[in-house]
């Protein structure tokens, strides 16, 4: 086994052993799907926008990937607090390998999470177009990688637990609500519309929607290009910040 594999495996073991995380990760999306899906469905339909569940489900899949990936990335804060981070930082391996192992681990968990939510959504009435499923998977992977690396970058730059609440309230929530996961972007007031354009998750949600059978706003190629470039940049910045961590 090598460094990347063992650190990847560590993330997976920790995730599947944490019962509370598993339950929360299924319960929360389910609640959103049921409450919003059945709550707004009739209004959405009446407004001539089509099937709301098919519109909403890709957004909720993206949401659960966002949360899981960000949490995996910022887990560095815990590893620093409880000391395990030191053990990896003094090891005779490059810090880039450590960063890659951790990021792939976080992204894999997020991807599993997205897949679970995909099936949950089908249980409550989501009827996806399965032809483009492999492409949907590519988008899910990009969202997973982007947000794990993003979480890693932020956690590497912070040095205490207090930062965590700030990230939660001022980063994750706005990213989620401004991504168009819950409502169409096209009718938004202009100012808000432009804000949604700088949210990377917007392109992830749009890509997932396009590949799973609803209408896309920007086109799949644009979604893929923007998200792909953002992911590469974030991985590079995250690696750099991680390599400079001091304990």
């Amino acid at each position: 086994m090598n460094t990347i594999t063992i650190l990847w495996l560590r993330q997976l073991k920790k995730y599947f052993r944490s019962r509370s995380r598993l339950i929360g990760s299924i319960g929360q999306p389910l609640l959103f799907l049921i409450a919003l899906g059945f709550g707004f469905g009739p209004t959405f339909q009446a407004a001539g926008e089509g099937n709301y569940m098919n519109f909403l489900a890709p957004g909720i899949i993206a949401m659960s990937i966002l949360f899981t990936a960000m949490f995996s990335g910022i887990e560095i804060i815990w590893d620093r607090q409880f000391g395990f981070l030191k053990e990896t930082l003094v090891a005779p391996v490059s810090r880039y390998e450590i960063m890659i192992g951790r990021t792939l681990g976080g992204a894999t968990i997020a991807l599993c999470q997205g897949t679970i939510v995909f099936f949950i959504a089908m249980l409550v009435g989501f009827t996806p177009n399965l032809v483009m499923l492999p492409f949907a998977f590519v988008f899910a992977l990009l969202i997973s990688l982007f947000f794990t690396a993003f979480g890693t970058a932020i956690a590497s730059a912070l040095d205490d637990m207090q930062g965590f609440q700030l990230i939660m309230n001022f980063l994750i929530m706005p990213i989620f609500f401004l991504s168009g996961a819950l409502f169409p972007l096209k009718d938004l007031p202009e100012v808000i519309y432009y804000i949604t354009l700088i949210d990377p998750l917007t392109y992830g949600v749009d890509g997932l929607r396009g590949t799973l059978g609803a209408v896309t706003q920007f086109g799949l190629l644009t979604d893929f290009t923007v998200l792909g470039i953002a992911t590469v940049i974030t991985l590079a910045v995250g690696s750099y910040l991680f390599s400079r961590i001091q304990v």
Partner: peptide, 12 residues
């Protein structure tokens, strides 16, 4: 190195 502070992963 053996650190003064704990550095194990408690979940493993």
């Amino acid at each position: 190195i053996v650190f003064q502070d704990p550095s194990l992963d408690d979940d493993l």
